[in-house]
């Protein structure tokens, strides 16, 4: 049972830091480092990347020295599946469909993330959110959104 005393959370955390460090490290390769007198665009990021990699190693080492921490607990899979795409959908459609339909679907998608939400409630909620936001943000505050976009048939 050699794995008993490993804090899995910190193993994942350390590996994640190393991966992020590696990503930034690779990206920094293409940048000019410069000298300490005239620092290039890559100088500061390079220092930070090295620091991040060191910290990643430190977290990884600490995972093997401490006793197992709290478990990670339940993960909001359904939430991630529906909450995260909501703003992406809004971004993809706000120019094409326009503010009103894009927002309606965004609210509807997000509403699906809860197991407690019933379809009809979600629909009514999305309609209310859309009407209220259009009144407040578009008419009230005058934010420059196109309410209905070019993808829709124009009247």
């Amino acid at each position: 049972m050699a794995t008993r005393n490993i804090d899995t959370t910190n193993v994942v955390a350390g590996v994640l830091l190393l991966a992020i460090g590696a990503f930034f490290g690779l990206q920094t390769m293409g940048l000019e480092i410069g000298t300490s007198l005239r620092m290039g665009p890559g100088y500061f990021p390079m220092m930070l990347t090295i620091l991040l990699l060191i910290l990643g190693v430190a977290v990884l080492i600490s995972a093997f020295k401490t006793k197992a921490g709290e478990p990670i607990g339940p993960i909001a899979w359904r939430g991630m599946l529906l909450i995260l795409p909501a703003p992406v959908f809004f971004g993809l459609t706000v120019k094409g469909l326009g503010f009103v339909p894009a927002l309606f679907f965004t609210a509807l998608i997000a509403a699906g993330a809860s197991i407690k939400m019933k379809p009809l409630t979600a629909l009514i909620l999305a309609v209310i959110v859309t009407i209220a936001s259009t009144l407040i943000f578009s008419y009230g505050l005058g934010l420059p959104f196109r309410r209905f976009g070019p993808w829709l048939p124009q009247f």
């Binding site: 909501a86 971004g91 706000v94 927002l103 965004t106 609210a107 909620l125 999305a126 936001s133 934010l143």
Partner: peptide, 17 residues
């Protein structure tokens, strides 16, 4: 479950604006 779709809509509008 009523609140967070509203919050998501506001976040989307907010960031975009």
């Amino acid at each position: 479950y009523i609140l967070f779709p509203i919050i998501m809509a506001m976040c989307s509008i907010g960031v975009y604006s």
